[in-house]
Computed example of a mutant assay.
Amino acid sequence: MTQPECPPQSDAQPGAPETGHPQPVARGEKPLVGWIIGGLVLVLLLCIGSCGALLTTANSADKPDQGAAATPTASSPLDATSAATTTAAAPATTEPPAPTYETPTKNDFKLKVKLLRKQCFGSAGCNVTYRIDVTYTGSGLDPSKTYEVTYQVKGAEDPIINTFEVTGDSASVQEEEMASTKRSGDKLTAAVTDVAEF
Rank of each mutant, 00 (worst) to 15 (best):
A90E: 00
L32V: 10
T94Y: 07
G49Q: 07
E197M: 12
A84L: 12
V192A: 04
K118N: 06
T181Y: 04
W35E: 12
F164K: 14
D133F: 00
P72V: 05
H21Q: 07
V173W: 08
K106A: 15
A26Q: 08
V128A: 07
L44S: 09
D11P: 05
Q174K: 13
A88T: 14
D169P: 04
L40Y: 07
P99D: 11
D62F: 03
V173M: 07
T150L: 03
S170C: 04
E157A: 03
V33I: 01
L32Y: 00
G38A: 11
V25E: 14
T189C: 02
G168D: 02
R27F: 10
K145L: 15
F121W: 12
P104Q: 03
T71V: 14
T56E: 10
V173N: 12
L141P: 02
Q152L: 02
A74F: 07
K145M: 11
E157K: 13
S184A: 14
A68S: 11
V41D: 03
A156V: 13
A190L: 09
T73E: 15
F121R: 05
L32P: 13
I132P: 02
E176H: 06
A179P: 08
V113D: 07
E148M: 10
T146M: 11
T87A: 11
G38P: 10
G138C: 13
L46V: 12
Y147G: 00
G138E: 09
F164N: 06
T19S: 05
T146L: 05
F121E: 14
N127I: 02
Q3I: 14
K154E: 13
S139R: 07
D142P: 01
D194A: 13
C126S: 03
E177G: 15
A69G: 09
S75D: 15
G34L: 04
G15H: 09
C51W: 04
V153N: 11
S76K: 04
A69V: 09
A16C: 10
P77W: 09
I36D: 00
Q23T: 15
P64D: 10
L46K: 08
A68M: 05
T56R: 15
I48W: 07
K30H: 06
T85G: 09
P8F: 00
P31H: 14
T81D: 11
P159T: 12
Y136P: 00
A80H: 01
P14R: 00
L188F: 09
Q119K: 15
G39F: 10
E175F: 06
S144C: 11
G15W: 05
R183A: 14
Q13P: 02
G49R: 01
Q119E: 14
S60R: 15
A90P: 01
P96N: 13
D158L: 10
G49I: 02
A83W: 00
D108Y: 03
G155H: 01
P31R: 03
S82Y: 02
V134W: 01
P14W: 03
V43Y: 04
N107G: 14
Q174Y: 05
A58E: 13
Q152K: 15
K110W: 00
A16M: 10
